[in-house]
């Protein structure tokens, strides 16, 4: 049986992510210490809440080094805030360094559409995602058809520096916002695969095959 390691640093509820992985038939190990992260075969990094607070917790638990080390060669999936924390820096409330696994910054979602109408933030709901600069074949989204929908809840987004890292985007009032990132074995999704029905479970299954 495959094994996946879920990083628990006290930011948000892991239960739903854990259930989704269990549902597709893998053993889920909850990691609270560096040693467990070092031994991971597949690492999942969820996150709910605010960027600075989540980074502080990682620091308090002394997990930053272990995560960065493991990310050198372990398949890694950041979810929502977890994906945002993979970047260099967060701009939520205050400038906070991230894990620096993917070049880019985390910024507040635009509050107006391209033609100036007010947008609702936090952004919450189902969106169709599409490929931007990177094809999906053999990526995290390999099994996702053009007709799709994923569930999002967030107020910030990943502004990635290299467009080749941007695996998917969704339309937010005319703005193309990062929906998923990938560089080799480093992956992240802004949406919640654990809340996106069968389509989300497909992303989870696919991650385990990488």
């Amino acid at each position: 049986m495959k094994r996946v390691t879920l990083i628990d640093y006290g930011a948000g509820n892991l239960l739903n992510v854990q259930r989704a992985f269990e549902h597709v038939g893998v053993r889920v190990e909850i990691a609270t210490e560096a040693k467990q992260i070092e031994q991971a075969e597949h690492l999942v990094f969820p996150g709910v809440g605010a960027f600075p607070e989540a980074m502080r917790r990682l620091q308090q638990k002394n997990l930053i080094g272990a995560i960065q080390q493991a990310a050198v060669d372990t398949p890694f999936l950041g979810i929502c805030l977890g994906m945002q924390m993979m970047l260099d820096q967060g701009e939520e409330f205050e400038s906070t360094p991230g894990l620096g696994l993917i070049a880019g910054q985390v910024k507040a979602l635009p509050t107006r559409t391209l033609d100036g109408k007010p947008m609702k933030v936090p952004h919450m709901g189902w969106e169709l995602i599409r490929s931007n600069h990177q094809a999906w074949s053999s990526s995290l989204l390999n099994d996702i058809p053009p007709q799709n929908a994923f569930y999002f809840v967030h107020s910030y987004y990943a502004d990635v520096q290299n467009v080749t890292d941007q695996l998917a985007v969704f339309d937010f009032g005319g703005h193309s916002i990062t929906a998923a990132i990938q560089r080799e074995h480093l992956m992240g999704c802004q949406f919640h695969p654990e809340k996106s029905g069968l389509m989300g479970l497909k992303v989870i299954e696919r991650f385990l095959d990488i």
């Binding site: 799709n148 929908a149 069968l198 389509m199």
Partner: peptide, 12 residues
């Protein structure tokens, strides 16, 4: 609305 194709069997 969510496309029906994205719901049944994940659309494949």
């Amino acid at each position: 609305v969510r496309p029906q194709a994205s719901i049944q069997q994940g659309g494949t």
